[in-house]
Computed example of a mutant assay.
Amino acid sequence: MKSNLLRPFALRRTVAITAAAVCAAAVHSTTWAAVWTGGGADNEYSTAANWDDNLSPSGADNSTQDINGAFTVERSVDSTSGRTFIKGGATMNIIGGSHDDQRSGANIFNFLGDSSAGMVNQSGGEYRIGHGLRVGVGGAPDGAYNLTGGSLDIYRGSNSKIESDNPGGRPSLEVGDTTGSGLFEISGGSLQTRAGVHIGPTGVFSVVGSTPTGISIGPSGSGDGSWIQHGMLKAAIDAGGVTPIFIDDFDDAGGVVGEFKSGSLLDLSFDGVAPFAGTWTLMEIENTDIVDGGLALSDVTASGWNFSIDNSGANGLLTATYGVPEPASTMILVMAALATGPRRRV
């Protein structure tokens, strides 16, 4: 018969092992990184068999889901994770469902293109990011986010650190770097952020037409929005005009920042319609002025376009105007063309 003297030791050992296992599981649940393999029967983000740890992202609040390679991943079923990296030629299509990448903290980002290409195409659903989103930032990347429907809510900035190049604080959305390229294009759906937007020298922020239901920088939380641009802002006018970008002043104290740095470009065009005369608001910044450090039209913007920054009212405004040439000017151009055309031999 076994001695009962061994039982306390065995019990203590069992308890110790159980506690260690729980502790290890807790560490795993808060810090692990899962790598996409695509080993499941579908390409759905929430399918456990598609990840190397064979665990569903749902409930993995602080995990990092790494999609690195020439994969096409679909998010259509509700999912919750910590953050998502998309690189190595990967594409993620968001077509429906409610998705929350909810990890937060200093220097926490979703990377879209990081030293290699990555793309997100969102046509539906709700996508919430609880930290920052970097598109085409870091080590010669190429990143693109195409928002055609649904909603994107970057509901935290990475933190409120003030940076020398961004007096509005570290941004919620960064597009482009000094190498590679970054594109954020919205042609439908809505964008909302907690903090600001930073467009790097290789970055492009594009608004196509009037279909987007809202582009709101700063209202998702208790902070101000901001806009710091080195690269390019594109706006394409459709029959209904264009949806303006609104930079939010949370407490109406005028603390927001809107600045076009030297070398910033504005690209203007029409989308799906013949050119027609008009003036459209492209950006409105609440309770403060827009600082123009050298915004200029791009080389590919057609003649007839111009822009204006108006700080005369309570809110700073960036507007674009297209003017159809006057009849007299048109006649002069026609006559000049005829004069320089081929002459008929007598």
Rank of each mutant, 00 (worst) to 15 (best):
I215L: 04
I217A: 08
I217W: 08
P219C: 03
P219N: 02
P219R: 00
P219I: 01
S220M: 05
G221S: 03
G221V: 01
G221K: 01
S222A: 13
S222V: 06
G223N: 11
G223W: 06
D224N: 15
D224I: 08
D224Y: 08
D224L: 08
G225H: 09
S226E: 02
W227E: 09
I228M: 15
I228L: 13
I228C: 13
I228N: 15
Q229S: 15
Q229D: 13
H230W: 14
H230D: 15
H230P: 05
G231P: 11
G231T: 05
M232E: 15
M232L: 14
M232H: 04
L233F: 14
K234R: 14
K234L: 09
K234M: 13
A235C: 11
A235R: 08
A236M: 10
A236T: 11
A236V: 06
I237F: 00
I237L: 00
A239F: 06
A239H: 06
G240E: 09
G240P: 13
G241Y: 06
V242K: 03
V242H: 09
V242C: 10
V242S: 11
P244E: 07
I245G: 03
I245R: 02
I245K: 00
F246E: 10
F246W: 07
F246R: 06
F246V: 14
I247H: 02
D248V: 07
D248E: 05
D249M: 10
F250K: 07
D251P: 05
D251V: 07
D251E: 12
A253G: 13
G254M: 00
G254C: 01
G254R: 00
G254P: 02
G254I: 03
G254F: 04
G255E: 12
V256F: 05
V256I: 10
V257Q: 14
V257S: 12
G258F: 04
G258H: 04
E259S: 14
F260A: 04
K261A: 15
K261E: 15
K261S: 15
S262Q: 14
S262H: 12
S262Y: 10
G263M: 09
G263K: 09
S264F: 05
S264N: 07
L265E: 12
L265T: 13
L265Y: 01
L265H: 03
D267N: 10
D267R: 12
L268I: 03
S269P: 05
F270Y: 13
F270T: 11
F270Q: 07
G272S: 09
V273L: 03
A274V: 07
A274C: 00
A274K: 06
P275Y: 06
P275N: 10
P275G: 08
F276E: 09
F276Q: 10
F276G: 10
F276H: 11
A277T: 14
A277D: 11
G278S: 06
T279L: 08
T279I: 08
W280D: 03
W280Q: 03
M283K: 00
E284T: 14
I285N: 02
E286M: 01
N287D: 13
T288G: 14
T288M: 10
I290W: 06
I290F: 10
V291A: 14
V291L: 12
V291R: 12
V291Q: 12
D292T: 06
D292F: 04
D292H: 06
G293H: 03
G293C: 08
G293V: 05
